[in-house]
Design a protein around this nucleic acid. Structure first.
Lengths: 258, 258
DNA sequence: GACAGTTGTCTCGTATATAGTACAATTATT
DNA sequence: AATAATTGTACTATATACGAGACAACTGTC
């Protein structure tokens, strides 16, 4: 046992890895870490050889995807990758349409509307257009929220098996910020209902004074690939929510394939 | 001549290229193009072999940096690269501080403020916080504007030789949207003045009813690596602009490396 | 002031990723 | 319907990018 470990440590000839894969690892690691890291530490963290890590990071830096802080030589994402990101939101065929639709929705209804996707097992806010209510939602583009906390989360999971869902969501994601616990069975039922209804309404989950009205965006094969969603004050009349729902569903249909 | 060309075409054994470099080419090409492209066309455009282009694009797609439209199989930037981009603006050591400072500046002065860098020979708007004036500037994060059109452009070029500047800026960039032409010599003088003053004020260039007040952010070796800038209505009093300038310069100093 | 740890650069042999080619399946074009 | 062009996948050989290791220049630590 101990011998194996030692042997593994000394003799281990590291599998040769493509630069391409290493780059993807670097970028992903850098995001997950959430702050700059020096090259040596990066190589350790990925247990990649220092030599090739240097060349790759230098290449990426030269290309502008990474930047190295001059004072403490930590690595960060660079300008260029930011601009590529903006290209996603402006040009990606789905994102572009969704963004325009969300802006229109917010303009017409006056309510905060959002475009969300499933990313890394969480609800992820990709675009938001704030409404003109005096009360403001404290959300920001890029935030990632546990699926059970959101209406969109229920739709994004629609059609998946119980097993898949349970595997995808870490247990702690069933506990709301204020400590309340969401029962898995209730959650699964809500997903089923959302799937059947073609939309989902949740009240006072993340924020106790807000309700969320979400609708699916279906891809070409009929799966929910994203959602649009309205963030509303909790005290609207039946009639008001009904009208908003119809308006939202119109957008949902406009964005879905055929 | 013709023979050479023919021979080059038939016999040319393409230099083997690293996947890493190819990826950088792909991303850059995709942004410059500004819309989706199919893999075959991409390989042509880069004159890269189809086979390796396929593997690379597939790798990037699997990683989430690219997405392939299901209906017409065109390639776009993917979600993941958007989130990486957001990491730049939130975590990159300069961008993070600049962003916070710009927000503070806008809050305190009530004026629209911006964080800009030099990218691909153009002024590039990286972050903006709109003020509370009734009149709104129609600018958006990511826009790239010819350097001569902006106050920030003058500062970003400060310290460079005439030769460098002329080479960097394409001739058409000296013509404003409304047809007015900026004389190179006036421009060079303005750069020199900006460098000397440590800030730059331009009136009515891109927009005839706006003036821009820009200040440099110096890097560790004393070069202007970015600027912050206020977008103001053109009819402010001397006293008002003076106060705003002082406030702006305080931010500029706070962001610069000693 | 000696010692350990880290950083950035370089050189070298070999495992392997890339260019090339081929092929069936689509899609466009005539 | 026949022809042409394109797409996506698979298969090899060989040019080369990667891992390993060595080195000097710093940086901190006791």
């Amino acid at each position: 046992m101990i011998n194996d470990a030692l042997e593994a440590k000394t003799n281990a000839v590291q599998r040769r890895e493509r630069g391409v894969d290493r780059i993807l690892q670097i970028l992903e690691f850098l995001q997950r870490r959430g702050e700059g890291i020096r090259i040596g530490a990066l190589a350790n963290a990925l247990n990649a050889p220092r030599s090739s890590t240097y060349t790759l990071v230098n290449d990426l830096t030269e290309a502008g995807l990474l930047e190295i802080s001059q004072e403490d030589s930590r690595i960060f994402f660079g300008k260029r990758i930011y601009l590529y990101g903006l290209s996603y939101i402006h040009e990606n065929s789905l994102a572009k349409r969704a963004r325009m639709e969300v802006d229109r929705l917010a303009r017409e209804t006056g309510e905060t509307s959002e475009f969300c996707v499933l990313h890394n097992g969480r609800y992820t806010l990709m675009h938001m257009c704030v409404g003109n209510r005096p009360f403001r939602i404290s959300s920001a583009v890029g935030v990632q929220i546990p699926l059970p906390w959101t209406a969109s989360g229920r739709l994004l999971l629609a059609g998946r098996s119980r097993k898949e869902i349970v595997e995808l969501i870490p247990p702690e994601d069933f506990v709301l910020p204020d400590g309340r616990r969401i029962e898995i069975n209730d959650f699964l039922e809500a997903i089923e209902k959302a799937r059947h209804d073609g939309y989902c309404l949740t009240k006072g989950l993340v924020d106790t004074v807000a309700q969320c009205l979400a609708a699916p965006i279906y891809d070409a094969v009929g799966l929910v690939e994203a959602t649009i969603c309205l963030v509303l004050p909790i005290d609207l009349s039946e009639g008001q929510t009904g009208m908003l729902r119809d308006r939202l569903l119109a957008s949902s249909r406009a964005l879905s394939s055929r």
